[in-house]
Structure formats: C-alpha cells, structure tokens
Design a protein around this nucleic acid. Structure first.
Lengths: 187, 187
DNA sequence: TCTTACATACACCGAACTGTGTACGTAACG
DNA sequence: CGTTACGTACACAGTTCGGTGTATGTAAGA
C-alpha cells in the first residue's frame, strides 16, 4: 500500500469518511460553498468513489441531514430520569458548542422545497414538534399540540438568531418556554 | 431609439431597475442561485451598466438589504393610532404575502459574518429589537429589554419556520407574544 | 451646440462547479 | 487460487459563475 502510485490510499470505509467530511464542511462553510472536489480531498477519497456511493451531491446532502440526528434529540426526550416538564425545558439547554440547526440552513441554502434535503428538513421539524407535543401531553398540558408547536417555534427562533447575530439566544428562548409551560399546565 | 443595434434600450433609471430586479429574484430564487446575467436580463440593463453602479455582486446584495426596509417596520412602530401594547402585537400581523425575512436568508446564504450584507443583517435585527424594546418601555413593561429581545426572537422563529415548513407560523408567534406581554406589564 | 454622464452591445476571461470515462490497483472471501 | 466488490488516479466534458475590455450610442443640461 505504501509504494507505487497509490501512496494516499485509505482503503475501505470511504462512505463514512465522506459523510464525516460532509458534517464538517457543510457546517463550517455551508452546502453551496463546499465543492465536491474539496469534500473528497478532506475525506481522502477519490471523486469517483464518492459518485459511486452517491449519485449526486443532492443525494449526499440529503443523507448528511438524515445522519445528523436520526433519533430526534434522544439525549433530551429519551431521558427517564427527568419529568416530562423537565424534558421540555431540557430541549433548550444546548451543549454550547452546537453549530446550529443544519435543517434551517439546508432549506434556505437549497431554496427548493422539492429537494430531498428540504423535504427531510420539514420531516425533522415536524418530528421535533411531535416529540415536544408528546412530552407536553405527558406533562399534563391542556393543549399539548399548541404547546409543542410553540416550543418548536422558540427553538427555531433561537437557532435563527444565534446564526444571524452570533449571540447566544437559547437562554432567552428557555425563559419564554418556562413561562409558556407554566401557563399551559394547570396547577 | 427604435432602429439600429439599440432596439432594447431602456434609458435612464438603470439603477432602480437593477434594485427592483434584485428584490424580485433574490426573494424568489435566493441570492446564490441568481446570476448577474439573469439579473441584468430581468432588469433590462446591460451587464456593463450594472457593474458601473455596483463594483461587485456583494455590494449589490448589501444595497438590496439596505433598501428592503430602511425605516425598520414603520408601518408598525410609527402608527400613532395604536397604543404601545397594540403596536407590539401589530408586529406579528404580517400582510400574508410577505416573502419573509431576507436578512436571515442573506446571513445563511452568504455564510460569511464579515460580508457587508451579513453585517447589515445584524444591524437590522438589532434595530428591530430596539424598536420593540422602546415600545415595551412605553407600554410599561417592567423589563423592556427582555421583552423586546423575546418578541424579536418570536419574529425570527416564525420567519424560520414559515420558510422551512411553508406553514404560517406568525399566528402561533402572536399567541406567545400576547402571553409574554401580559406577563411583562403589571396590571 | 457642445460637453458630459449615462447606458448599450457583445465578446471574452479565468475560475469554479457537478459529473463522467477509463484503466488500474487491492483487499476480502469463497 | 480466483472472483468480486471496493477504491484509486487523472483527465476532461459541459456549464455557470463573477467580472472586464472596448467601442459605441444617446440624452440631459450648461
């Protein structure tokens, strides 16, 4: 492997390297500003290999989103040590170093609602709202759907503002969430 | 004007036609997917003319944002027939056909915080929050800055969600706003 | 009328982009 | 061993992009 014209060979596992490079580059540079040449260079994969795993960049982008959070925030909603009300609030305690909502970014960058990645972004947002609604129901909210949709809106607002202003907006969203939750759950 | 190689001449006012075409195309297609060739064709302006008014596309994008809402929602905040509290709520009653927050879109699409348009997007977001804070103070809120920032976050959340989900989210944001306003203003 | 600012047509440049064709290595597995 | 799937190198097609060079036309204002 070391000699000959193939000194840079990395062997099997190209697909994972491609997706790993996608996570990094799409987050840091955006989707449109990341060319396949650069992506393949970072992944240490030949371009031909990349196009044998993904028929197009669009498909790679869609898979990148699918792999980002397949469990839909399991570290929040699958915690059994928290009450439903605590889980609702935990959704706003982000790990600080989170790059922030690639789903919104993808929908804006691609700008085509029919793009598979845009469709998945919608699905993901609906799934988040559904999990919030579920927790709201368990917490005894009088209108769980409404509370779930409201909290989902707060998350997206904090994401958007963090992105535009580069100032942490999740504490603000968390404060609003606390008010809404208290108002929505009868004492 | 009718004969010769200049049959398509449109005369003076090229700058306004360029900016008008920008409003339409950047909104409908996004910034990155709109080439200068297409933009000039829609504006019925020669490419050379466009680059005599703007030294680069980046500068055009920045000017496009500056012209979008220079008064920072005057139709909401400059209304004297409404009470401060009513003005705060009026910020969530969008005219339904609004294309929706080009500032967030620009910040995401350009992906460079140093880009002049990204900087203006930040300035605009800060200005909106300032106007909300001012109205909150007039309305007698105990913590006007907090309420202003909260309401600004709601607007951005509704914008982002409308964009991703293509479902109207401003009514949801308005409902939250009503709760926050009532909680923030002592009876 | 003459000057000057504005607008035009059109070809063109270099760079970047997505995607492909081809021929070749190499590792796993029966 | 041999087969097969995976990976590689590298050039290149075809397009689009932002931006420019050049020479020309035309309208407004002094």
């Amino acid at each position: 492997m070391e000699k000959g014209p193939l000194g840079r060979r990395r062997g099997r596992g190209a697909l994972e390297r491609i997706l790993s490079a996608s996570q990094q580059l799409f987050r840091d540079q955006g989707i449109n500003r990341t060319g396949m040449d650069q992506l393949c260079a970072v992944a240490q994969v030949s371009k031909r290999t990349a196009y044998q795993h993904f028929t197009s960049k669009d498909e790679l982008v869609a898979e990148y989103l699918r792999r980002f959070d397949p469990g839909v925030m399991p570290e929040v909603f699958d915690r059994t040590d928290l009450t439903p009300r605590e889980r609702l609030l935990a959704a706003f305690e982000i790990p600080a170093s989170t790059p922030l909502c690639p789903y919104i970014a993808a929908a804006v960058e691609l700008h085509d609602p029919q793009h598979p990645a845009s469709q998945y972004a919608r699905d993901y947002k609906i799934a988040i709202a559904a999990r919030l609604t579920e927790a709201a129901r368990e917490a005894g909210a009088t209108n769980p759907e409404q509370l779930g949709e409201q909290l989902a809106l707060l998350i997206d607002g904090a994401s958007a503002r963090t992105r535009v202003l580069n100032s942490e907006s999740f504490p603000t969203a968390a404060a609003i969430a606390a008010v809404l939750i208290d108002n929505a759950i009868p004492a």
